[in-house]
């Protein structure tokens, strides 16, 4: 009976992971990771000695919505890395499903766009699963508190994917400004249309 219960729980857990229902939300403690950047070096958040937090962005080379936000992510890094919140972009897509999202193509994208933030490859998709990311782009703003990475915001960069100048709710910037001022983040979670993460088959 105990064994059966354990199996049922394991099954439920796997189902929850598979559908991304275990998503981080504001207030949760995020896990650090060790992922390969475009130079083949392993990168963790704990390696950033000066950071107060991070703009962890599930990203890729191919999604049209990501492309719409490309400049905006670079602008966020330019504005907020000096204030303690650098961008870390993570590509979780399986290249077997989405060939344009291979590590080699990541190098090309980073070079073509001139990324100055880290662009990491979540080859096993474990980080995306753990964070509960479902699509690209999908932004997680984290802040160090007492040696832990607290999730402060999950969702979209702003409320107009098509036209940056028409966005009148800049969720990510507002969350970051609040954190820098030492205030509570007012809007801690949003949802936005994006490309589904290309999970490994089977």
């Amino acid at each position: 009976m105990k064994k059966y219960l354990f199996l049922s729980l394991a099954g439920l857990l796997m189902a929850a992971l598979a559908t991304g229902q275990s998503q981080y939300k504001a207030g949760d403690i995020a896990s650090d990771f060790s992922l390969k950047n475009i130079e083949g070096k392993m990168i963790s958040m704990s390696q950033y000695s000066d950071a107060d937090g991070f703009i962890v962005s599930f990203w890729c080379n191919t999604c049209p919505v990501v492309k719409k936000y490309d400049q905006r992510l670079q602008d966020l890094h330019a504005k907020y890395a000096p204030k303690g919140y650098p961008v870390i972009a993570i590509n979780p897509n399986d290249p077997a499903v989405s060939p344009g999202d291979s590590w080699e193509k990541m190098k090309e994208t980073a070079a073509a766009k001139g990324y100055v933030f880290e662009y990491l490859f979540d080859e096993t998709q474990e980080v995306a699963r753990k964070y509960g990311a479902t699509n690209t782009p999908h932004i997680y703003i984290l802040a160090w508190k007492d040696g832990k990475l607290v999730v402060e915001y999950v969702g979209a960069i702003d409320n107009n994917a098509d036209d940056a100048s028409a966005a009148d709710k800049k969720y990510a910037e507002e969350a970051l400004n609040s954190l820098i001022r030492g205030e509570k983040v007012a809007v801690a979670g949003t949802r936005a249309i994006g490309c589904t993460i290309k999970w490994k088959k089977g």
């Binding site: 229902q21 479902t134 949802r191």
Partner: peptide, 11 residues
């Protein structure tokens, strides 16, 4: 969220 409480926006 009006479509489904669990939907994060992936299509």
């Amino acid at each position: 969220e009006k479509v489904d409480a669990s939907w994060q926006g992936n299509i």
